[in-house]
Structures are given as C-alpha cells and as structure tokens.
Measured scan of single mutants.
Amino acid sequence: MGFKLLSKLLVYLTASIMAIASPLAFSVDSSGEYPTVSEIPVGEVRLYQIADGVWSHIATQSFDGAVYPSNGLIVRDGDELLLIDTAWGAKNTAALLAEIEKQIGLPVTRAVSTHFHDDRVGGVDVLRAAGVATYASPSTRRLAEVEGNEIPTHSLEGLSSSGDAVRFGPVELFYPGAAHSTDNLIVYVPSASVLYGGCAIYELSRTSAGNVADADLAEWPTSIERIQQHYPEAQFVIPGHGLPGGLDLLKHTTNVVKAHTNRSVVE
C-alpha cells in the first residue's frame, strides 16, 4: 500500500471513529477524501466538511520552486461564519470567499490569524475590503508590521502568557507558548472536538522541520505538551499544512522538532 493511500485511509478511519463516538456532533463529509496538494491548482481553494458547521479550507501556493498546501478553518456561528487564517495570499483568499459563498452561503463576518507569517495573514486586506472584521493577538499584529505583512485590524486580548485561553464565538483560542513562531495560536472547536494546530503542528508525513527561522526550538516541545494537557479530548487535529489526523500529530511534531534540534547540535 502506497504512503499517500495509507495517509488518506488514516484520515478516513479517524473521521469514521469520530462519527461513531459522537453521532450528534459529527456529520463528516462523505463526498470524498481530504484534498491534497496535487489536486488543488494554485489560485483555487477546496472546502472539506469535518463536522456539522465545521470545515477546513485548503489552498496551495508556490514557494521556492515548489507547491505547498495550506489549511485553515471555518466555523459556523449562528447565521454567520468565523474564518481562521487566510488562504495564503490575496488571490487565494478572494477564491476562498467565493467558494464559501458557493458552498455554504453564509457571510464571513470575523477572521482570526493564528500567527504573523504570510500563509496566515496574506489576504487580510481582501477580507477587510469584503467587510470582514480581522483579528490577531497584539504580538501577531506587531510582528506582521515588522515583517511588512498585512496586519489584522483588531487585537485579541488575554493571550499574552503561555497557557492563556479565551473564548471567541464558537471557538476557544489558546496560546501554548512559542513553537513554530513566538505568537502562534491554537484554535479548538469544543462542539466538535476539532483542534486546529496551525503551523505549530505537523502532518504525519512530514519528517523535516522546514521553516524554523522564527521558531523557538527549545520551547516548542513544552508548548505541545500544554496543548495535549489542555485538549486531551480532541479527536480531529488539523495541521497548518497537509493531512489531518488525531492527537498523534502532536507527538510526531515533537519528535521531528527534537530530531532537528539534535542534528543542529551535532553539526
């Protein structure tokens, strides 16, 4: 069995187990497998329904001669939608809004960016022009300005110390501490036991640490421990890039980060 097929099978099995364990909360999309990078042309966006009122959005972007996937989250909030992270750029984010209108038909009224990198804030200006209120932590807003990236308009308070959590509509926002970046936030959907790890969490097929220019490698494993301790009931975990899975993604990420750190020390 090929690795790609095995990865998709694991996603399907995880979703099936969740649907059985929580039949009222989960209505997993039966329309197909989780979209992969090879299936999404740059400039297009796919939506994948995880649970009743919960979707991931998947886009792709060219970077350094390669094409990478990027995940975000959409959560229903009454007759409105909360968006977590842009679709990595203005063109993708405009396509995301169009796809949401086509498939869901509810307005996106608020959006949260989970850290300051372009795959999370690139497209904020498109959201703002569409009347979406954009939010991020003060740290993310400051770092985005320093980096020359787009800056969300509103500040999220109460997320300055490791372990801080605040309720934001249908989700809980959690600051686990520094990891992929010093400002990275985690998003949890309690009604569906869905954990969105953003770039602080890796997919299972990833074996290298990737972009760690703004990471705190020493603190990252401790931050992941905080996530595990705060959300032990999480059933569906979405990484910032690639295929979702279960809580095993947290341990896998820790292993990859520690291996990278150990290699760096040896070198």
Results as ranks from 00 to 15, higher is better:
148 G>P: 02
56 S>Y: 13
160 S>L: 11
28 V>I: 14
64 D>T: 09
258 K>I: 10
247 L>P: 14
124 V>R: 01
212 V>D: 12
169 G>R: 05
52 D>F: 10
214 D>A: 07
207 T>W: 08
92 N>P: 03
175 Y>G: 00
262 N>Y: 11
255 N>Y: 12
47 L>H: 06
36 T>G: 10
65 G>M: 08
90 A>C: 04
99 E>H: 14
48 Y>K: 10
122 G>L: 05
143 L>N: 06
133 A>K: 15
75 V>G: 01
239 P>D: 00
127 L>Q: 00
193 S>L: 14
25 A>M: 15
60 T>N: 10
242 G>A: 04
10 L>H: 15
260 H>E: 14
64 D>K: 09
249 L>H: 02
48 Y>W: 14
134 T>D: 00
204 L>S: 12
217 L>Q: 06
99 E>V: 15
86 T>A: 05
1 M>T: 07
121 V>D: 04
168 F>A: 02
172 E>A: 03
21 A>F: 14
201 I>L: 11
233 E>A: 12
128 R>N: 13
192 A>W: 05
189 V>S: 03
178 A>G: 10
32 G>A: 12
25 A>R: 14
88 W>A: 00
171 V>H: 02
146 V>R: 14
257 V>W: 01
145 E>F: 13
74 I>P: 02
157 E>C: 07
117 H>S: 00
182 T>R: 13
12 Y>L: 09
206 R>H: 10
246 G>T: 12
129 A>C: 02
226 R>P: 04
258 K>S: 13
232 P>F: 06
190 P>G: 07
186 I>D: 00
40 I>L: 15
223 S>P: 08
16 S>I: 12
127 L>A: 03
105 G>S: 12
32 G>F: 14
52 D>Q: 10
62 S>Q: 08
258 K>A: 11
63 F>H: 09
84 I>H: 00
30 S>F: 12
104 I>S: 01
130 A>K: 14
29 D>A: 12
67 V>F: 15
18 M>I: 15
173 L>T: 04
215 A>N: 06
198 G>M: 04
11 V>L: 08
74 I>R: 02
163 G>W: 04
3 F>V: 13
163 G>K: 05
157 E>I: 11
161 S>V: 14
55 W>G: 01
65 G>C: 04
112 V>M: 07
63 F>I: 15
9 L>P: 11
69 P>Y: 15
20 I>Q: 12
233 E>Y: 12
169 G>T: 04
128 R>P: 05
157 E>P: 11
256 V>P: 00
171 V>W: 03
253 T>Y: 03
267 E>R: 11
109 T>A: 12
176 P>T: 03
127 L>M: 03
8 K>L: 07
73 L>F: 05
232 P>Y: 06
118 D>L: 06
70 S>K: 02
82 L>G: 01
166 V>D: 04
29 D>G: 11
196 Y>C: 05
267 E>H: 12
266 V>Q: 14
56 S>F: 08
102 K>H: 15
14 T>F: 07
20 I>D: 14
175 Y>D: 03
14 T>L: 10
152 P>R: 00
222 T>M: 12
50 I>V: 12
64 D>Q: 09
214 D>G: 11
242 G>Y: 03
44 E>D: 10
59 A>V: 15
252 H>I: 01
219 E>M: 09
158 G>D: 08
259 A>D: 12
85 D>Q: 00
42 V>W: 06
72 G>M: 01
30 S>E: 13
243 L>F: 11
239 P>I: 01
125 D>Q: 09
200 A>Q: 00
90 A>V: 08
265 V>Q: 13
199 C>Q: 00
112 V>I: 10
27 S>M: 12
178 A>V: 07
125 D>S: 11
61 Q>M: 14
130 A>G: 09
74 I>T: 07
226 R>G: 04
18 M>F: 13
15 A>T: 11
154 H>L: 10
7 S>I: 09
65 G>W: 06
125 D>V: 06
33 E>S: 10
261 T>M: 13
135 Y>G: 01
145 E>S: 13
228 Q>I: 11
69 P>Q: 15
231 Y>G: 00
4 K>H: 05
205 S>P: 08
55 W>I: 01
144 A>D: 02
127 L>V: 03
74 I>D: 02
86 T>S: 04
47 L>W: 02
18 M>R: 09
192 A>E: 09
125 D>T: 09
103 Q>G: 11
105 G>E: 10
29 D>V: 11
222 T>C: 06
220 W>D: 02
5 L>W: 14
187 V>P: 02
264 S>F: 10
68 Y>D: 06
90 A>T: 11
224 I>K: 02
219 E>H: 09
224 I>A: 01
62 S>Y: 06
250 L>K: 01
192 A>D: 06
11 V>Q: 08
88 W>I: 00
66 A>N: 15
235 Q>V: 11
226 R>D: 02
21 A>P: 08
114 T>M: 07
234 A>R: 00
106 L>R: 10
155 S>C: 06
4 K>G: 04
41 P>N: 12
195 L>K: 02
169 G>E: 05
236 F>R: 10
109 T>Y: 08
71 N>M: 00
74 I>Q: 01
69 P>T: 15
169 G>I: 04
37 V>M: 15
24 L>T: 15
237 V>T: 03
240 G>C: 00
69 P>V: 15
250 L>D: 00
177 G>P: 01
247 L>I: 14
255 N>G: 14
19 A>G: 12
265 V>P: 14
25 A>S: 14
261 T>E: 12
49 Q>C: 08
164 D>H: 09
9 L>R: 15
29 D>L: 09
174 F>S: 05
71 N>F: 01
151 I>R: 04
3 F>S: 10
17 I>H: 07
87 A>Y: 02
257 V>M: 08
203 E>G: 07
113 S>M: 06
240 G>E: 05
53 G>C: 05
120 R>N: 03
136 A>T: 06
172 E>Y: 05
63 F>R: 08
157 E>A: 12
84 I>A: 03
197 G>Q: 01
15 A>R: 09
175 Y>N: 06
194 V>W: 01
225 E>W: 11
99 E>G: 09
196 Y>V: 00
245 G>K: 00
22 S>F: 08
152 P>A: 04
8 K>D: 13
66 A>K: 13
188 Y>E: 00
256 V>R: 03
106 L>I: 12
207 T>E: 15
64 D>R: 08
26 F>V: 14
